[in-house]
């Protein structure tokens, strides 16, 4: 019963946050930026042209109505049409999500899996040479800018060695695979450093708990303690960490998608940015925020389910 009330309250809290997100987007795009028509029409636009365009884009309407439009779009997911391509934005997003997810999903799960295994090994040999080397490699790898990785791997592995296609994308299940291997590989390399560090800290945090000492005193083996006791307890932060990252998979990787010409959401963001396509940027901000809000709610629910100690007021 208590849980139910908590869930309902937590669910209702979505509304002010969503309204706030819309308010910030509205504030940035509809108030601060002022009049986008000179950007769209160029320097030689006449005043009449600008006026008609404003009318056409609905920029002459009362401000509260413009705000209401954004809020409405968050619920109906109908974002209107792009200024640049005149397409339905919701359709553009659907078209873009498939290539994005085809690259980010496998990359994300592989990198999480690999990082978790490395973290377990490192935690097992904590304080030793393996631990030191892996930690040093992680921190060094994290210190190289992502753009440098992409440029280097694309140039060296794809262009010079010809191991992968340099760029491009094919729709349909088996066809896209050759095109996503290299970007996915770079994604894994980029995320393995922070992931291993996080998982290692989580596991080590558990290792210092009293129950581990008890298990050791009982005479259980190191492997037994690590896999049967510690790992289970460290699953909570690990699950949270994984779930909260899922919405970002929709957003894709702007850099990777652009360099490898994957026609996903990341490419959409950049082309919208270059053509001052405000509706597309606004709707992407709304939809990714929506995903983020829903998934953070989901992690909270998971938390209470997985850990009965978490009693929420």
């Amino acid at each position: 019963m208590n849980n139910l009330i908590y869930f309902i309250r937590r669910f209702l809290y979505l509304i002010p946050v969503l309204l706030g997100v819309c308010l910030i987007i509205f504030f940035l795009f509809n108030i601060v930026v002022g009049d986008p028509t000179p950007l769209l029409l160029g320097k030689n636009a006449t005043i009449e042209q600008m006026e008609t365009l404003r009318e056409e884009l609905g920029l002459n309407r009362a401000l509260y109505l413009q705000y209401f439009d954004i809020v409405k779009s968050a619920f109906t997911l109908d974002f209107g049409r792009s200024w640049a391509t005149k397409q339905q934005i919701s359709q553009m997003i659907i078209n873009g999500v498939v290539p994005t997810l085809s690259m980010t999903l496998p990359a994300f799960f592989l990198s999480t899996f690999i990082s978790l295994i490395v973290a377990i090994v490192v935690a097992f040999y904590r304080g030793g040479k393996v631990d030191f080397v892996v930690r040093a490699a992680c921190i060094a790898g994290m210190s190289i800018p992502s753009l440098s990785y992409i440029l280097f791997f694309q140039y060296y592995l794809a262009y010079q060695e010809g191991l992968f296609p340099i760029q491009g994308y094919d729709y349909g299940f088996p066809h896209f695979i050759p095109f996503i291997i290299l970007p996915a590989l770079i994604w894994i390399i980029l995320s393995i450093g922070p992931d291993v560090r996080f998982f290692r800290t989580v596991i080590l945090d558990e290792l210092y708990q009293d129950y581990v000492r008890t298990a050791k005193a009982k005479g259980l083996s190191q492997v037994n303690i690590l896999f049967k006791h510690v790992l289970r307890n460290s699953l909570i932060p690990v699950i949270t960490y994984v779930v909260i990252q899922l919405p970002y998979l929709i957003l894709g990787a702007i850099l990777l998608e652009n360099f490898f010409s994957i026609p996903g959401i990341g490419s959409m963001i950049l082309s919208a940015l270059n053509s001052n396509d405000f509706p597309v940027l606004k709707s992407l901000a709304v939809i990714t925020s929506l995903a983020l809000i829903i998934f953070s709610l989901l992690t909270d629910f998971l938390y209470t389910l997985v850990d009965p100690r978490v009693k929420l007021s």
């Binding site: 706030g20 940035l28 795009f29 919405p247 990714t288």
Partner: peptide, 22 residues
């Protein structure tokens, strides 16, 4: 809390892009 929850609900790359654009 509402304010920072709201800000952190927008993926920072979208916020950064919007602010720099403006």
């Amino acid at each position: 809390v509402w304010f920072y929850t709201t800000i952190s609900s927008i993926p920072s790359i979208m916020l950064i892009i919007s602010i720099s654009l403006i």
